[in-house]
Structure formats: C-alpha cells, structure tokens
C-alpha cells in the first residue's frame, strides 16, 4: 500500500468524492451494456420481439461459435482487418507525402486547389463501379475504395497543419541560413505531429467505412461480405454477429492509434 500523505480533512473529502464519481460512471457504463444485452435476450425469449429480425445475444454467440468451429471466424476477420489496415496505411502515408509536395510548391498547390475541392465533395463511393472495372474485383478494389475515401481528407488536413506553422519560426530558421528542406525536416514536420495524430484518429474510423462499403460492392470474404450475405439469406444472427465483431476490431484499432498518440506526444 502506498502511504497516504497528510492531507487536510477537506482535501480527503474532495478526493473521496472524486473517486466515488469515477466509480459511479464506471458502474453505469457497464450496467447499460449488461441491461441492454439482458433485455434483448429476455425480450427475445419471451416473444416480445421477433427474433427472426432482431436475433438474440445467445443466438449471436452461437453464430460466432459456429464460425469459429468451421475456421471461418479468423479468416473473415483477418481479411477485413487486412483491407482496412492496408487502406489506412497507404492513404495516410501517400496523403501526407502529397501534402508535403503541395506545401513545398505553392504554385502547384494553387493549380491543384480546385481539383482537390471537387474531389473532396465528390462521394467517392460513386467511383466504385469504375474502380472495380479498372483494378479488378477483389481485395485490390476494396483497398482502393478505402484509400480514395481517406486520401483527400488526409491531404487537406495535413496541408492545413503544415501551413499553420508559426511564420516567425520560419523566419528564425531562415535567418539562421536554413534551406527549405531543413525548414521542412526540423520545423514543419515535428510541429505538425499533433495535427498528424488527429488525422490518424479520423482515418482510423473512416478506414472501416471504406473497407466495409468496398466489401458491400465487391467481395467474397470479410465481415462486410458476411453482413451482406447474412441479410440476403435472412440469417440475421450472422449479420448481428459480424457487426459485433466489427465493433471489437474497430475499437482495438482505435486503441492502437491512441497508444501511438501517447508515445509521440510526450512533450507537448
């Protein structure tokens, strides 16, 4: 046990209130989940709801178990995860590189500005059929759709972050005789890390949108595929199970990004 320092009575009371509140919030969070699942199960068992449409938690679990037994569980999860992570990485890296080029050449940025605006407002999913024809049905077109959804936003936000850098800091570096590459490497990039982290956070959510929509359009495996397949043959247990698995994967990926954030923003 850590020895308690000598706090005043008032401070002890304050600390107690704080920890009680934290405990209350935690209990409520878990209760909501348990209550929801329990209600869902009971309502299904007692026939209050049509389990053919809504399924029940026990059926969802059974569905996940049977996927596991047939060895399909990790196969489908793996495929969707692969598409999502690949799309996420390609879009983030490529988008950041393009943003660097546009920061470097102001003229190029001005020339391309209207194109970026148009591409940004275009619903990328409209390009789906074209992409399938161009790059072929399969994982490659799903990754491409995912990249397309992410990349424009990445370029725009990274470029904004680069351009927000303090003018005086740039002036300072120039007065020390820095060239453009040194300004980029020693100032612009390190100064943009918080902006980069928020782009990562946006992209981690959007990349799942990209891969699932991609799977809806064209796929023969993956969680998105299971959802579409399940709804077509009215196996709603399977649809629910896939959705829940998706929730788990997306949360895990978000946690990884949050961990990365902690690692790279120590001194800010």
């Amino acid at each position: 046990m850590k020895k308690q320092p000598d706090y005043s009575q008032e401070h002890k009371k304050w600390l107690q209130q704080k920890s009680r509140k934290k405990w209350l919030v935690g209990v409520c969070q878990i209760s909501i989940l348990i209550f929801f699942i329990a209600f869902w199960e009971i309502a299904g068992q007692l026939g209050w709801i049509n389990t053919f449409i809504t399924s029940t938690p026990s059926k969802v679990l059974a569905s996940i178990a049977s996927l596991y037994e047939s060895g399909e569980l990790f196969y489908h999860m793996g495929i969707t995860l692969y598409e999502t992570v690949l799309g996420f990485i390609i879009a983030t890296v490529l988008g950041t590189l393009i943003a660097i080029v546009l920061w470097w050449s102001d003229t190029l940025r001005r020339i391309l500005d209207p194109y970026i605006v148009v591409l940004n407002s275009l619903p990328k999913i409209a390009l789906g059929p074209l992409i399938i024809i161009w790059v072929g049905a399969g994982i490659q077109s799903i990754v491409t759709i995912c990249v397309l959804i992410l990349i424009i936003v990445t370029i725009i936000s990274m470029l904004n972050t680069f351009r927000e850098c303090d003018e005086e800091k740039i002036l300072l570096m120039r007065s020390m005789g820095a060239n453009k590459f040194q300004i980029l490497w020693k100032l612009i990039l390190p100064a943009s890390i918080p902006g980069f982290v928020s782009v990562l956070k946006i992209n981690v959510g959007m990349s799942w949108v990209g891969s699932i929509i991609g799977e809806y359009l064209v796929s023969s495996a993956g969680l998105g595929y299971l959802i579409v397949y399940g709804s077509q043959v009215f196996k709603l247990d399977l649809v629910m199970a896939s959705t829940i698995l998706l929730c788990v994967l997306a949360s895990l990926m978000y946690l990884v990004v949050a961990l990365i954030e902690k690692l790279i923003t120590k001194h800010r």
Binding site: L172, M173, G177, P190, R268
Partner: peptide, 30 residues
Amino acid sequence: SGKIGYMFQHDQLFPWRTIWQNVKLGLEIQ
C-alpha cells in the same frame, strides 16, 4: 551567411526540443 541573429516577441523555442537541442538548432542548420 547566418551572421544575423534574430529575436522575436515570442521566444519561438521549439516545444519538442530540449533547451540544449533548441540552442543547438543553428549549429545543426549550418
């Protein structure tokens, strides 16, 4: 030339560098 030293209204130290690394900036550039 880098023979001009500039001081601004704000210190413009780089928050991700230690004091030592901040002071070393000019030497790194040159």
